[in-house]
């Protein structure tokens, strides 16, 4: 089914995609002429496949549940923000806050993302084939962020229990983020994520892992004199 945003309103297109007849066999949709509109495919909850042909604006595929969404273009701020499950695959670049606060599902970005990729992520798996901007994985709580390129300043600042896997250079680490030794379990996680994004598994050896030093979890008694 083809949904043309030049002919139908964004609200109508989203309504159609949000209220799928579960008994029907219509499972594949295409959205054409996105023209940078905001909130395209936000709030989908069924197991459908949607291909967006072009560039989108803010919050594309936000709050996604179950749906598999492919964007043949770039996406604006907050792609797949607060996603619960399903897959979002961006064939171009993403703007800031990609996958922000998302609880689950998989976000694959073929290009680069700008700042704050995976900010406050709560269980999502994000795989970026390019580089990420500054403050990525800021306060990341759970889930995995895989970066095949480089990371900007303050990677993983104030990170909790999320993992960051990175192949390229880290410009600087944020507070309480440190390199970790990768064990078998971590390697298996990375292997399955690379597989999801069709990246050669042999690349595993080129990745480093970062996580929380857990020094901000509790008050440091040495600082008591500050009060």
């Amino acid at each position: 089914m083809n949904l043309n945003l030049k002919k139908e309103s964004l609200r109508k297109v989203n309504e159609t995609l949000q209220s799928i007849d579960r008994k029907s066999n219509k499972k594949i949709f295409k959205v054409s002429n996105p023209d940078g509109n905001h909130a395209i495919c936000a709030g989908l909850k069924d197991e459908i496949e949607v291909t967006i042909d072009g560039h989108t604006g803010y919050y594309c595929a936000g709050m996604n549940m179950n749906a598999n969404i492919i964007v043949n273009g770039n996406v604006g701020t907050g792609v797949a923000e607060n996603m619960m499950s399903g897959t979002v695959h961006v064939k171009g670049n993403a703007s800031q806050s990609a996958g922000a606060t998302a609880h689950g599902g998989t976000l694959i970005i073929d290009g680069d993302t700008s700042s704050r990729c995976g900010i406050s992520m709560k269980g999502i798996d994000i795989i970026v084939k390019g580089s990420v901007g500054h403050m990525s994985a800021f306060m990341a709580q759970s889930g995995n962020l895989v970066i095949c390129g480089d990371a900007g300043d303050a990677l993983g600042d104030s990170i909790y229990e999320a993992n960051i896997f990175i192949k390229g250079k880290v410009k600087s680490l944020g507070a309480d983020c440190e390199e970790k030794k990768m064990n078998k379990k971590d390697q298996n996680i990375l292997r399955s994520l690379l597989k999801k994004a069709s990246i050669n598994e042999s690349e595993i050896k080129n990745f480093k892992m970062y996580g929380s030093a857990r020094k901000l979890y509790n008050f440091n008694l040495d600082n008591v004199s500050e009060y």
């Binding site: 023209d35 940078g36 560039h55 800031q96």
Partner: peptide
């Protein structure tokens, strides 16, 4: 925002990036 230039000629084949 990108939507401001969606009407420009051949914009879908333009080199599109965010200034660092």
């Amino acid at each position: 925002e990108f939507q401001a230039m969606a009407h420009l000629p051949n914009v879908n084949s333009a080199k599109i990036f965010e200034p660092e």
